[in-house]
Design a protein around this nucleic acid. Structure first.
Lengths: 192, 192, 192, 192
DNA sequence: CATGAATGAGAATTCATTCAT
DNA sequence: GATGAATGAATTCTCATTCAT
């Protein structure tokens, strides 16, 4: 059906170009529908973008959640969470960038609000994993869980971006290992 | 003189809107010069952007360097580096975002190349601080210094972004403390 | 439909102003369509120009060819060819000028190449008429047919241009007669 | 002095680009003077253009006249006239094109009038050579001398243009010979 | 449901010209 | 005489959106 084709095309185009550089023309072309069809299915560019972003967030949360169903040690949970986020970030670099960062630019206020809400949900989702970990195994440092979630996302996104430009220097496993280490243990060897 | 006024206006406008949303019209208006004056002083939008970004990078590196030239313990150096980056990020939120993330979107190829070079320089600058620290005090974990630099930037930017939307919940000192902790020690309390 | 209206308007505007003085705004206004419609139908100014020129060339060749179908004495064929070219040149003075001369200025290289090709085709078309004449009636001097074609066009265009500025002094018939004489017999009465 | 440098630069730039594509910036750069200096010496672009065109006309007329002041047979006079015009046309292809054709486009009315006057003078100059020939040797056909002059210019310009694009196929001598033949005797071998 | 022709507001860029020094 | 920074009108082109079919 058109709607699904459009969303897939939109994911591609937004991912490759960012919100502003992405054009409805190209999305339509990529989806192999007429431009009018875009507007038949979505009220406008920003709404289409919202749908795409929403799907991305839901996707990563669903994937992560599914993988965390069975009771696992915290370390393993964090490792898996990192892995799922790396997957998403490496699949569609710009998309993740948009999702986590570009939400602010030139989008209608109301859509913007919804996007921020989605972002909050995602941060909350990660924060909850962290909070749960705190209670269960007393492994986490007593820091604000939201900030912790946010810093984790920032690290992952930034590191992925660098990796994508220097793939010759690292393997995907290096990346995972590095991310896990730096997120959980930081840069210093030990602090009294 | 016009050139300086334009750069200041451009910093503002690019910071507030990102590269694509920023219009030469608004930059000219903000700088209180005619649109032609922009093109008299800069070959085009992307070149102006490059100038602005360059200035930002040089600024933060100069500031940081100036503050680090006396011999200091590593911890203090990292703390100050973090502080300077937070300063920049909080001063011009979108600007830092652009500088560290948006460098990829729809900018002329040649300018893009120069921007990437600037970015590499900055990463190298941070990596060097980390490398030096490794040698001198044996405090750093043996991780890749470039990835370490990149992850640090990612954390700081992401955390700043969150902070700017939740200023009521945290103080600037909270932020600094959190960033320092999470960057140097990670989220976990102890590791065997 | 828009496309045809635009081409007609473009012929007018290009004819009256030449390529560079012609503005897309005016073409749009003359065609009574929005500016965007121009760009919906043609990729840009130079492509629109190319279309217009192409149509002009095809037009004159078609008209001439149609009139030369039946077997005619060479003299009559040349006369008719001259007549058709005068028609075109007098109809749209600048257009013909552009077509035959302005092809060189500030047009994208690829479009320019196509225009030159069109011009070559037209020269070849005239040269063929001349070549055929040579064989059939042994009337033509043994000169290079391409140069002959080119000099014929030059004479006609130049003479038309002058005529358009001095219409009070000559009739259209004078013009035709003069062109025929000077092209076929030259300025001198007789040469041994 | 500046004035002369500017004129030389202007000749070059107008020749290479035509009136509209030529920019005052480039003329200034080519003349190695500041842009203001152009306007100090000439009231504006069109006036500068007029000066340049005037100089071109005067130049060719002077050269031709100098070469024709000894008594010569008509044929030789025509040959020399053709030769001088070919010289000019081949030296600065676009310039001659401008001089003989582009004078009409988007130039201020008053300057345009002066340019037309210059053109008329040149046509008159050629027409006079033809008229004189008529009287003296009774060699010329009894055609309008102005039209004859104009058609001669058209032939020469058109043929030069073609030659410049096909230099591999003809020599300069071929060109001269062809031009002389076609102008004086036309394309047909004999007429009853 | 779907189309695609048409729109028009807005953006970047060019360039002849002015003017204070 | 000469300069060059500054101007702003004009120009090409883009693209989200609308609407009749």
């Amino acid at each position: 059906m058109s709607k699904e084709k459009i969303i897939q095309a939109a994911i591609e185009v937004f991912s490759e170009n960012g919100y502003h550089r992405a054009s409805m023309d190209e999305i339509a072309a990529r989806a192999q529908v007429a431009k009018g069809t875009l507007y038949y299915n979505f009220p406008g560019k920003s709404q289409l973008f919202k749908t795409v972003v929403k799907q991305g967030f839901e996707d990563i949360m669903r994937r992560t959640e599914a993988d965390l169903n069975s009771p696992l040690p915290i370390k393993e949970m964090i490792m898996r969470t990192i892995r799922h986020h790396l997957d998403l970030f490496l699949e569609s670099r710009h998309f993740s960038h948009i999702v986590f960062n570009e939400i602010s630019n030139g989008i209608e206020q109301d859509v913007l609000e919804e996007l921020k809400e989605l972002k909050r949900t995602h941060i909350g989702f990660l924060a909850k994993i962290i909070e749960d970990g705190k209670c269960e195994e007393n492994l986490f440092r007593d820091v604000d869980a939201n900030l912790a979630a946010v810093s984790m996302i920032g690290t992952l996104e930034s590191v992925c971006n660098y990796y994508l430009n220097h793939q010759e220097a690292y393997t995907r496993e290096d990346l995972e290992q590095f991310a896990f280490t730096v997120i959980t243990q930081g840069l210093f060897i030990s602090v009294e």
